[in-house]
Design a protein around this nucleic acid. Structure first.
Length: 956
RNA sequence: GGGCGCAUAGCUCAGGGGUAGAGCACUGUAUUGACAUUGCAGGGGUCGGAAGUUCAAAUCUUCCUGUGCCCA
């Protein structure tokens, strides 16, 4: 097949991808081969390909293509994540645009709508991954809400519950009042924002005073509205200012609530007045203080609704005027915060903040301005409210124990290793994982509730929401409703008619209307990460004992961005260990972020995102992939550099043109996997170089050094194969095409080019596949070709000869350039004292010397008297000095300048080495190799100094 | 405040106890057969600063400065 004169990536990419996918190239049947498995971090079903995906998936594709070529039964599991909150938000936004809303539908109908959305608009990213060339096993594409996946999720939940590792608890949770759901610690982003610090007087109850006589305690807060639910004031136990009032009470302004003054280490005597207000129902620290002060979670006052509007506390003390206000100013409308401050100020409970103006005048402000670390929900973007609710928690601490051990003992290797510390730091301080979400889209929690049995007696409650403080129904956790009913029937047997059975209602309210004990299902769904934690085995069919699970679990490697180390990687370790009894993979590779050209994080709001598909359109997928690989050194973020992508597009073009050159000289596909036997020096040399670069790439891949692997094949292809080998063999084709040299060279060149295509294929799959087929009719596609194993013997003499010719050529060119001699000029040269290498090389490679070094004729023997330049040729096997007469060719002064420059360099080196060698300490204490090398280098440079001085003298 | 990184050529980055590397950019030069998305040649760095260890430090240690991320 003849190649077009220009390389056009777009026209070949779509064609080859389709071909690979249709012919099963991504998952060739290799039942007896050693398995190699990776699973992709499932992108959100709502997602589209961003530059981070491009990096992550390129690296994975390089690994999987490499292992596939090495003959493994390579499986790259692909799929998408149902992304609970994100997906529900997308569909809700769509409804909003149509003046519709979720609550206009039943839960079932809404979930159906989401599925409809997925069918039509979901999974954009799967098409985009194809454009990148990713060789995933699409035939088994997974979704975290697939039926078999749900089975895995349910089993895991039920097992964890039965093992006491999942429990229901009432505690403060990170509540997103916009999305109206709990979220986990990891989904909270702390940002520092400008805020205020207000100081208030809390009056002591009748007759009580501090030791200094004051009849109030000063407290300060950044969230004044919470004072409506204050339950105590805390002072440090050692704080003498307050020792006399500990155990006494204050009477809260506004609510009139009488609350105790408690001693607690949490109060910092150095901070403000040393006394802090305690709102256990709305602050994580205060919750702990409250517990220590003897309040149980169920008694803690709650003053906010799920939207974060003020509601009545259970003691009924919040004045009417505050009820219904939002927690703070919103959409320009004052909220509870502003109202509370205004009221306290009016009632003279506000202690003003005195600030000085620039002129030194004192001015009163209501509050002191402050930077406040504020928690925001990473999805909803609003301030997170600590809220007291019943939620399901996973005992992460217990599950984390084994993974910690596995990373410590090397069962799991984290690459680069620096991440281990971060991993340990988080895992060793891990908090209970809140896994319930108040959403409709997701895996519904397999729990049913029924009336509580108190000493065997039924305790019915007045129907109320799940956040009801005083009623904790007993959960029944089961894989199916039938099982739940069965358990309930036993539990409530004495309250059921003979042979009767409990009924299951949609809601708690309906269940309470039932005259008999009845169940209602938990309304909540699981955190998305709960299901994605099962990805390494649930995608293979677990809990069924499928052949895939047996063969491909544990996986071999996981590649992910470091940003999901906790969200996903660590949780896979926990769940892998729990469900499968082993680590999900022995190696975890963490890569960095792709940043904008200026080093900033890419974000839509900054408008500095680079679209990978745009780069593919412009430079081709191969160039983008190669860029990603070449820039991926361990432990550093990648800064976007389009010029570099362009450079790799040029590299692809170079290879394209090199192949065109081969074709025009009758060089086609190779017939053998092993290197052909070769007699010509250039051919032996390139075979040796192929072996070397192959070993380099293999080492780099074993170390997961993508940059080293990419650079190795780049340098080999361009600097060795194109720049030297193709130039070296050109003279051969000027001769008889049927003679041995041409026949052998066509064979070797075809083989070497094939090896390049194979070794480059994991990095640049499209162009290599195209060229692979352009080079001849093949029995198989390159994607399933074998990785090189060039175990050929090449003679040292042959490779030395080529190294010598290359050195000679470079030196001649350099000298000509400096002397202003036309590069193409052919010069006669004399070799007075030829090394053995020189003699044999001049004999067998005269054509190369003539064509590349452009020295002709070369005469063995003394040069005639007269001005001349000296050119050296060096290789391991020999070192020679050519004399090139320059009479009438150039200005002698130029040659002198050139020699002077070289002389200065050699003198400098020689002097430095001499100094080192004359240091007794060096000679005695340095490694013998270092001393030997210094001696050899010194000898070399001394000789150079002598030679150059002589040459200068001859020029006069 | 705690933890983890980074600082090497104009730019983006490798490297690493024994004469400093790549790509891009730059300079000069070349255009009758693979390739100007190119060839050839070249300039450019006291490896952030200071001290220490060592025969020898860009490399190891400590401190400092700047900068980035994560956690509180």
């Amino acid at each position: 097949m003849t190649l077009d004169t220009t390389f056009d990536p777009a026209s070949i990419e779509a064609r080859w991808y389709k071909h690979w996918e249709e012919t099963g190239g991504f998952r060739p049947e290799r039942p007896d081969a050693e398995p190699y498995t990776i699973v992709n971090p499932p992108p959100n079903v709502t997602g589209s390909l961003h530059i981070g995906h491009a990096l992550d998936n390129t690296l994975q594709d390089i690994v999987i293509r490499y292992e596939r070529m090495r003959g493994k039964d390579a499986l790259w599991v692909v799929g998408t994540d149902h992304a609970g909150i994100a997906t529900q938000m997308v569909v809700e936004r769509q409804m909003e645009a149509a003046q519709d809303k979720r609550t206009n539908y039943s839960r079932e109908d809404f979930v159906d709508k989401v599925w409809e959305w997925k069918a039509t608009s979901g999974g954009t990213i799967t098409t985009q991954l194809r454009r990148l060339g990713c060789s995933m096993d699409w035939s088994r594409e997974q979704f975290t809400m697939d039926e078999h996946f749900t089975k895995a999720v349910l089993k895991t939940f039920v097992d964890l519950y039965n093992d006491g590792l999942i429990y229901r608890d009432k505690r403060l949770v990170n509540w997103d009042p916009k999305l109206k759901t709990a979220i986990s610690d990891l989904e909270v982003e702390t940002q520092t924002i400008a805020g205020s610090f207000w100081h208030f007087k809390y009056p002591l109850e009748d007759g009580v005073t501090l030791s200094d006589g004051r009849d109030y305690i000063e407290v300060a807060t950044t969230r004044p509205e919470t004072m409506l639910a204050d339950m105590a004031v805390a002072v440090h136990p050692s704080d003498e200012r307050y020792a006399s009032v500990v155990g006494k009470h204050v009477v809260l302004p506004i609510t009139g609530r009488r609350i105790p003054i408690v001693a607690d280490e949490h109060a910092d005597p150095e901070l403000g007045s040393g006394a802090v207000k305690i709102t256990p129902g709305h602050d994580f620290n205060d919750f702990e203080v409250g517990k220590r002060a003897g309040f149980v979670a169920g008694e803690m006052l709650n003053m906010l609704t799920s939207d974060a509007n003020v509601c009545q506390t259970s003691d009924g003390l919040v004045p009417e005027e505050f009820l219904g206000l939002h927690r703070f100013k919103r959409d320009g409308k004052d909220g509870a915060r502003e109202a509370v401050v205004a009221r306290l100020k009016a009632d003279r409970y506000l202690i003003p903040h005195i600030a000085k103006t620039k002129k030194g005048e004192e001015v009163e402000h209501d509050a002191e301005p402050r930077q406040i670390a504020t928690p925001f929900g990473d999805r909803g973007g609003v301030v997170i409210e600590p809220w007291l609710t019943d939620q399901w928690y996973v005992d992460a601490e217990k599950l984390a124990a084994k993974p910690i051990e596995q990373v410590k003992d090397g069962t799991i290797e984290i690459v680069p290793q620096t991440w281990e510390k971060t991993f340990f730091n988080w895992m060793e301080n891990i908090q209970p994982w809140c896994v319930s979400r108040q959403l409709w889209w997701g895996h519904r929690i397999p729990a049913w509730f029924g009336p509580k049995l108190h000493d065997g007696a039924l305790e019915m409650s007045s129907g109320s929401e799940f956040s009801n403080k005083n009623f904790a129904p007993d959960p029944i956790v089961a894989t199916t409703e039938e099982e739940a009913i069965q358990i309930a029937n036993e539990r409530y047997a004495r309250y059921l008619p003979e042979g009767g059975t409990v009924r299951v209602h949609d809601t708690q309210t309906e269940a309470h209307k039932d005259l008999l004990p009845a169940l209602w299902r938990d309304q909540d769904v699981l955190d998305t990460w709960f299901s994605s934690a099962l990805w390494p085995f649930a995608t293979l069919g677990w809990p069924n004992e499928t052949d895939l699970v047996k063969k491909h679990f544990p996986n071999n490697l996981l590649i992910s961005g470091f940003d999901i180390l906790f969200f996903w990687d660590a949780r896979m370790m926990m769940m892998g260990q729990y469900n499968m009894g082993t680590a999900p993979w022995p190696k975890l590779y963490l890569h960095g972020l792709v940043r904008a050209a200026d080093g900033a994080k890419m974000s839509k709001s900054k408008g500095n995102v680079v679209d990978p598909l745009g780069l593919i359109d412009q430079y081709g997928a191969d160039a983008l992939r190669f860029f990603m690989a070449a820039m991926e050194s361990q432990g550093r973020d990648i800064k976007m550099d389009e010029k570099r992508v362009e450079g790799y597009r040029n590299f692809a073009t170079k290879l394209w043109n090199a192949t065109r050159f081969c074709q025009s000289n009758g060089i086609g596909k190779s017939t053998t996997i092993k290197a052909p036997t070769a007699r010509l020096a250039a051919n032996q040399w390139i075979i040796g170089e192929v072996q070397q670069v192959c070993a380099e790439i293999e080492q780099a891949m074993a170390d997961l050094r993508f940059d080293a692997a990419a650079n190795a094949i780049y340098q080999f292809t361009w600097s060795k194969f194109c720049d030297w080998y193709l130039e070296l063999i050109k003279p051969v084709f000027a001769g008889d095409p049927d003679a041995m040299p041409a026949v052998e060279t066509r064979e070797v060149a075809g083989w070497a080019l094939d090896q390049i295509l194979v070794m480059l294929h994991p990095f640049m799959p499209f162009i290599t596949e195209e060229l692979w087929h352009a080079q001849g009719t093949r029995k198989y596609d390159l994607i399933t070709a074998s990785w090189p194993s060039p175990r050929a013997e090449v003679s040292k003499e042959a490779t030395d000869a080529i190294d010598w010719v290359i050195d000679l050529t470079t030196n001649v060119r350099s000298a000509k350039n400096e002397l202003g001699i036309a590069p193409g000029a052919k010069l006669a040269a004399f070799l007075p004292a030829a090394s053995d290498l020189a003699s044999s090389t001049i004999g067998r490679s005269s054509a190369a010397i003539e064509r590349l070094a452009r020295l002709t004729p070369v005469t063995m023997g003394e040069a005639p008297d007269g001005p001349a330049m000296q050119v050296t040729a060096q290789a391991t096997g020999g070192s020679d000095v050519f004399i090139v007469p320059l009479e009438g060719i150039i200005d002698i002064a130029e040659e002198k300048a050139r020699l002077e420059k070289a002389l200065t360099a050699s003198q400098k080196e020689a002097k430095s080495l001499e100094g080192r060698l004359s240091n007794a300490n060096f000679v005695e204490r340095a490694k013998p190799e270092a001393v030997e090398k210094a001696k050899a280098d010194f000898a070399h440079h001394s000789a150079e100094v002598g030679r150059l001085e002589g040459a200068l003298k001859r020029l006069g």
